[in-house]
Design a protein around this nucleic acid. Structure first.
Length: 435
DNA sequence: TCTGGGGTCCTAGGACCC
DNA sequence: TCTGGGGTCCTAGGACCC
């Protein structure tokens, strides 16, 4: 059996932990660049605010209803997420982290812990996370990941306990018939109307369709996998995440690492674009080293205004294959800027840029003659990166950085005017209690 | 004026090669 | 005059998820 633990309205919950006066109040959290609403308290949902709604369109109504608005504070949310995962790790040795606010727990073989039954065990998980971290969760338990997601949705509708266990086949079918098909994990805005038109209204209707029908109408192998999962046959890998891993230990299963951002203002100057791309490359390289990985493919991305009329391509990409894999910021920046100069068209206004690193492999698979460096030079560069990361970890991101990232990011940096303090990860922003 | 970012997987067309 | 087929790489985009 698989449990899905989901921290509903996670970002709002994080803000509430340190500002308890927000409890019971309508609260929303914005995306990067203060662009859209990405987390809403139940009170804000009840007022009609939608997921992904543009902030500039919602602003007047938010003000009118006295909704508290926050820019996203990923330093805080990331740290709270790690705390939740640490608690979950006490309930099973196998935790598969799905996103910042969701994780699958493998409960097979945990019968001896769950003697009082899976429902009691799920309630204990929920209570413990709330007591230790202050974050509310919902827990769905079922035979497959897709059914656990479905159980989780139903759990959220429970008044108090927010736990739902689907153990028997009858329980699974009952849950499937209570769930409309567009709520199924993997059915998005394109497939939902198609299924409705075929008179498939509920998850049970879909599970009851024939395999060949599903293969034909639901994207081939992807649809069949979903269909089997709904019928209780596990098709999605359970891929335990190494929670205790020290930073720098290779993280398996990852295929790419990116850093892309929208600019506060459109940018035309190659100098500004270069500084932004160098900054994003540095950040991606940090992530790479944190996961103990090295990349041998780098993609530079430039995006024009995706909301402007016209049919031309909205993103332009250029791919570099590096001589060998690396996680060295300097080498990655050099490669990225070389490509950027070929990609950027003079006079074009770009609204977004980024870098994706792929072709990942565990770092340290000695890459001699990398960019013409000897083994000693290579070792020195690795030590340099380790020092850089240690300094930035201690004194804050960007304390020591490459000159190519520029001195002034105010031209291109996105807006984040409403941010709460990074009160669990930054000594300068510790939580203050006034008497 | 102002519309996120980070992922995965799949498909399609053009250029190029043999 | 007659103008194949298979492969790779690149770019772009679609679909889905959180």
């Amino acid at each position: 059996m698989i449990a899905l633990v989901d921290c509903n309205n996670f970002y709002v919950s994080c803000e509430r932990v340190f500002q308890p006066q927000l409890e019971g109040q309508p609260v929303v959290v914005l995306s990067n660049n203060d662009g859209c609403l990405i987390s809403r308290s139940d009170e804000a949902k009840a007022l009609g605010f939608e997921m992904g709604e543009p902030y500039h369109l919602a602003r007047a109504r938010l003000q009118q209803h006295g909704v508290r608005v926050f820019s996203s504070n990923y330093a805080l949310y990331g740290d709270m997420s790690r705390r939740v995962l640490r608690v979950l790790g006490d309930f099973t040795p196998e935790v598969d982290v799905y996103s910042i606010d969701e994780a699958f727990l493998n409960l097979s073989g945990m019968q001896y812990c769950a003697e009082a039954g899976l429902e009691a065990y799920a309630k204990t998980i929920r209570r413990t996370v709330l007591e230790h971290v202050g974050i509310p969760t919902a827990v769905g338990v079922a035979p497959t990941k897709t059914l656990a997601k479905l159980a989780n949705r139903l759990a959220r509708q429970q008044a108090e306990q927010r736990v739902m266990v689907l153990e028997t086949e009858q329980q699974c079918w009952a849950a499937l018939s209570q769930t409309s098909v567009e709520k199924v994990w993997g059915i998005g805005r394109r497939y939902a109307p198609k299924l409705q038109a075929e008179n498939i209204k509920t998850a049970a209707d879909l599970a009851g369709a024939s395999e060949s029908w599903v293969r034909r109408h639901l994207g081939g192998v992807v649809g069949v996998r979903l269909w089997r999962e709904l019928r209780g046959h596990s098709c999605l890998d359970f891929d335990p995440t190494e929670l205790a891993a020290e930073p720098g230990q290779p993280t398996p299963g990852r295929h790419s690492v990116s850093c892309t951002r929208s600019f506060g203002q459109p940018q035309r100057s190659i100098i500004t674009l270069s500084e932004a791309v160098a900054t994003f490359t540095s950040r991606a390289a940090e992530k790479l080293r944190l996961h103990g990985l090295a990349a041998h493919v780098l993609t530079v991305i430039l995006g024009t205004d995706k909301h402007a009329p016209g049919n031309g391509p909205r993103t332009h990409t250029a791919v570099v294959t590096l001589p060998t894999s690396t996680s060295d910021t300097g080498q990655l920046i050099e490669a990225a800027l070389q490509k950027l100069r070929l990609l950027a068209r003079p006079g074009t206004a770009y609204c977004r840029a980024g870098v994706t690193l792929s072709g990942l492999e565990p770092a340290g698979q000695a890459q001699l003659s990398m960019f013409g460096h000897s083994a000693e030079q290579l070792q020195q560069r690795q030590q340099l990166m380790a020092r850089l990361d240690a300094l930035n970890a201690r004194f804050g991101r960007g304390t020591v950085r490459h000159a190519a990232t520029g001195l002034d990011d105010s031209l291109w940096r996105g807006r984040r005017n409403l941010m709460s303090a990074a009160c669990t990860t930054d000594w300068q922003q510790l939580w203050q209690v006034r008497s």
